[in-house]
Amino acid sequence: MQAMLDILGGLVLVSGTVFLLLGALGLNRMPDIFNRIQAGTKTTTLGTMLTLAGIGLMQPDWSMKLLLIGLFMLFTNPLSSQVLARAAHRGGARKTPETEVDRYAEDHGDPS
């Protein structure tokens, strides 16, 4: 039983790190800061949660603490990226030329 859980946990672990790698790739390929924040937040959140879940499958007695770390990250990660995105916008970060509309700048003034 535990052997099967180990294999399953390993597969989940690998899929989580694949998402981390995709996020890192996105961080390098995206053209401006907002798109980079998008790539950085979503993939790392899901990737870390899958990694923690995989380790939880391998070591079932650790699952409560792993669950806590996962929940904490699920809650704080989007919050911090939202604050950073707003700070970047207020600081006049360069937006990629493909950006079509910017309602925030229309309502609050564009510092860039």
Binding site: L22, M30, P31, N35, T43, T99, V101
Partner: peptide, 21 residues
Amino acid sequence: NLRLARIVLEPDLPINPGIVK
């Protein structure tokens, strides 16, 4: 995540960003 993965892996980076309200 899957959608973002597809965007990142495509060579010509098909994005069309904007800030909406």
